[in-house]
């Protein structure tokens, strides 16, 4: 069996805010079809790391490649990294998609318009084709009946499902999830997790920052535990949730396991 090609390669990512080092050199490779769960306590840098991957945050050090395209990061005269070419960065981002904790649907566009916006305006795809894709995606996330509604009318879970449809609409190589269920009622968490599970079974490449241990254990192909800005341990869930897991990760799990 051949190893699938890497979709994302991040090497030695470092990031400080002022004096505080949030990321102390993290490397991660995601291969096609992998579902990687990133776990860690609050302040472990997991969200910052995710936001570095699509350059919403610019890392101080390190390299990022999507497929075989390097992120356009160069050193400025103060020795810090910066985005050298905004267009190239935007082009890189078109290969990925992100689902946010706070949904971030655009309130002035309807559900359908939210889903169609990026493929239509950024990717400049054919309108009929985009419409057909958007409709089938909304059906897929169970929001077909709401295409004409404005986001404000929807519940949190419904908004997040639309946001997932919006993320899939450009057919990205990689979908980043930034604590997608943290802002939801327990009731709504289940519907979003079920949707994410079915995406994983479909073979989507996903990197998920989450607190949902059950999701990490049952759905992901690899679990990464961040602590103090470093990868403390990582491995397949069977290993990480098994008896040979690192003590630090077991300590992290214990309050949840009780």
């Amino acid at each position: 069996m051949t190893v699938p090609p890497p979709v994302l390669t991040a090497t030695n990512i470092r990031k400080s805010f002022g004096d505080r080092e949030v990321l102390a050199g993290i490397s991660l490779e995601a291969r096609e079809g992998e579902v990687i769960s990133i776990l860690g306590g609050s302040g472990s840098g997991k969200s910052t790391f995710l936001r570095c991957l699509n350059l919403l945050e610019v890392p101080d050090e390190g390299q990022i490649a999507i497929g075989d395209v390097q992120a356009p990061l160069t050193r400025n005269r103060h020795g810090r990294l910066e985005v050298s070419d905004g267009r190239a960065a935007a082009r890189l981002r078109t290969q990925t998609a992100m689902v946010f904790q706070g949904f971030n649907l655009w309130p002035h566009l309807t559900v359908l318009q939210n889903v169609m916006e990026a493929p239509l305006r950024v990717h400049r795809r054919d309108r009929d084709e985009v419409l057909a894709t958007a409709r089938s995606l909304l059906e897929r996330v169970g929001m077909a009946g709401f295409h004409a509604a404005y986001p404000k009318r929807l519940s949190g879970g419904q908004q997040q499902r639309v946001a997932i449809a919006r993320a899939l609409a450009t057919n990205p190589k990689l979908v980043l999830f930034d604590e997608p269920t943290s802002a939801l009622d327990p009731e709504r968490v289940r519907e979003v997790l079920a949707l994410m599970r079915s995406l994983a079974e479909e073979g989507r490449t996903m990197i998920v920052v989450t607190h949902e241990m059950a999701f990490a254990r049952d759905v992901s192909s690899r679990v990464v535990h961040l602590m103090n800005g470093r990868v403390e341990s990582s491995g397949p869930p069977a290993h990480m949730f098994g008896p040979d897991a690192s003590p630090a990760f077991r300590a992290f799990l214990s309050p949840a396991a009780l």
Partner: peptide, 19 residues
């Protein structure tokens, strides 16, 4: 978050301002 969602999908600054 509104700007971030647009940037994460590869919107240019101009497109983000306009749309």
């Amino acid at each position: 978050g509104q700007f971030e969602a647009a940037r994460a999908m590869g919107f240019s600054d101009l497109l983000c301002f306009h749309r």
